[in-house]
Design a protein around this nucleic acid. Structure first.
Lengths: 116, 116
DNA sequence: CCGGATCCATTTGGATACTG
DNA sequence: CAGTATCCAAATGGATCCGG
């Protein structure tokens, strides 16, 4: 069989600031994590309890990427048993207005009976 | 072969307004579409030219879901050749502040040299 | 010109088990 | 407690073809 190459998914990076912004909240549960951290710094297992259904694997992934993007800080504490505290950075807190704006539009849209 | 059922993906809807908000901008290219429509009403093929790399299939899907959510309107025009015009609704325009807020945070984050 | 249908590659993230 | 590793199901979206 002639090895059909299938050049699928070949193309371009959009390289637009809009995408960057949306990617900040992109992954599953990301907004929840930011939301709970905005109320107070939290530890790993506290976040798991805060957000039922969120697996350790995904929480771990989200925390890492938020950290990489400078949205949250990670602070290991020398307690016994050892624990790690996560908190929003200054810039992270600046995401909150954007999130609440999104939410308020979503609420209005849900309220609408879809005029169609 | 014992038919392993694999109850994967079993659980819960978060049912949180935050998710709803994020879903408004969730799909690929969604923010781009909203952005270009915010500048002026546009036709299908104009949007395709505005956004290189966006396939007809996906543009079609995005337009439909934005329409279903009440963010944009779709107006077929009896021109020759026939064309269809898309525009933001009132509520759709309310998404713009949220988008720009997100973008401005993203720009600041990119500027940071990742303090580590 | 608009956009649906089909086919498929890539990505995402849930379940589970395990380690320091 | 705080994660990491493996395995796999489902969702996403690109390419291409086709019909209204």
């Amino acid at each position: 069989m002639a090895l059909r190459v299938r050049k699928n998914k070949a193309v371009i990076p959009p390289a637009c600031p809009i995408d960057e912004g949306v990617k900040l909240l992109g992954g599953a549960w990301t907004p929840h994590v930011i939301w709970f951290l905005s109320q107070q710094p939290r530890r790993f297992s506290e976040l798991r309890k805060d957000i039922p259904g969120l697996s350790a694997r995904v929480l771990s992934a989200r925390l890492r990427q938020l950290q990489d993007r400078g949205v949250i800080t990670r602070t290991p504490l020398s307690t016994s048993p050892p624990s790690v505290e996560y908190a929003l950075t200054e810039l992270g807190r600046e995401l909150l207005p954007a999130i609440t704006a999104l939410v308020s539009v979503a609420l209005k849209l849900n309220a609408k009976p879809r005029p169609r």
